[in-house]
């Protein structure tokens, strides 16, 4: 199987998942309890006004037409109008998306970098404190529910030792000056992102350490040593490079988990992002909003899954060059 076949397969697969999710999204929200109409339409409205509103939200079309309209509009990112705010969902989401991306990318990058670095370090220094630390951290992060840990941090640093803000993405009103504003943002970012990093890096480090140890025991590492390569070269160019395919794949495979984790993180830290928007919308039965947010999150998950496959194909020559061998 060549890389191209591989790629095409993954694309088709991603499209199928997208289709399933779109259909799910459509079906569930049409079937939601407490008819959408009750939500948007005040019983005191005149029949005409009621009709107009039904039309505006497209509630009168037959289901198939609604479905078609829905699919086509979603693909154009026309996500309808929020029941609660009467604003286009797309623009409400667009407002929040950058916040989510900032939080997410910060947490993700730090988790990855710290986790991998600590893991590599622990693999090199067997039997030292570093190794014990990594094993402990791995176990800890496996068992502790993220939201519990975040609540603890919030109480400790937000309320007890008040060194971090307790909610939001920035101070209101924001400080003057671009640099101060930037610092303010960072200040707000530390707890939500940091808690994710602390919860995330342990299992990363543990995984990296284990794969590194496995790689360091391989024959080609002895070859590299026999060749007289410097230690650093052996470690990075041979050991780390050869475990990159599984690590990178896992990095991307962990993306969906982090994307969905954003819902909880954003709720806890009142982060003005997509995840919290979803939660608010669900609790307020604001279906178009919930639908839009869910669609966005699902899309992110599909894309990151696809990237995982793609990157796996790219870093592993056995797939990229493709000589028949499947992993």
């Amino acid at each position: 199987m060549g890389f191209r076949t591989y790629l095409i397969r993954r694309i088709v697969y991603a499209l199928i998942v997208l289709f399933v999710i779109l259909t799910f999204n459509f079906a569930v929200f049409r079937l939601m309890p407490g008819d959408a109409e009750k939500m948007i339409i005040d019983p005191r409205f005149s029949p005409e006004a009621r009709m107009a509103l039904r039309k505006q939200f497209g509630l009168d079309d037959p289901p198939l037409v609604q479905y078609w309209k829905y699919i086509t509009s979603l693909l154009r990112f026309d996500l309808g109008q929020s029941f609660a705010t009467r604003r286009p969902v797309a623009s409400e989401l667009a407002e929040r998306l950058p916040n989510t991306i900032v939080l997410f990318l910060t947490a993700f990058t730090l988790t990855m970098v710290i986790g991998t670095a600590v893991g590599v370090y622990a693999a090199q220094h067997r039997g030292t404190f570093a190794e014990t630390f990594v094993t402990g951290a791995g176990l800890f992060t496996y068992a502790v529910p993220t939201f519990f840990f975040q609540l603890l941090l919030l109480m400790l640093f937000g309320y007890y030792i008040r060194i971090f803000p307790i909610h939001g993405t920035m101070s209101a009103p924001p400080p003057d000056g671009a640099f101060l504003r930037f610092l303010d943002r960072v200040h707000h970012l530390i707890l939500p992102a940091g808690s994710n990093v602390i919860i995330g890096f342990g299992s990363w480090a543990l995984y990296t350490r284990n794969t590194m140890l496995e790689a360091l025991g391989q024959d080609y590492i002895i070859t590299a040593r026999a060749k007289g390569l410097p230690r650093r070269e052996i470690l990075y160019h041979h050991a780390l490079r050869s475990v990159l395919p599984p690590i990178v794949t896992l990095i991307f495979l962990s993306l969906p988990g982090m994307v969905t984790g954003a819902v909880i993180t954003e709720t806890i830290f009142s982060w003005h992002g997509v995840g919290r928007y979803l939660m608010d919308a669900v609790l307020q039965q604001d279906y178009p909003a919930a639908q839009g947010a869910f669609y966005l999150i699902a899309l992110a998950v599909i894309i990151s899954n696809f990237m995982a496959d793609l990157v796996y194909g790219l870093v592993d020559p056995r797939i990229r060059v493709g000589a028949g061998e499947r992993r």
Binding site: V17, V20, I21, F24, V28, P256, V259, T260, G261, V263, I264, L278, M279, V282, A290, F294, I297, A298, V301, I302, N305
Partner: peptide, 12 residues
């Protein structure tokens, strides 16, 4: 497996 579980659970 590729569906974002928590959001789906939230909605359902």
């Amino acid at each position: 497996l590729s569906v974002p579980t928590l959001p789906v659970l939230i909605i359902l």
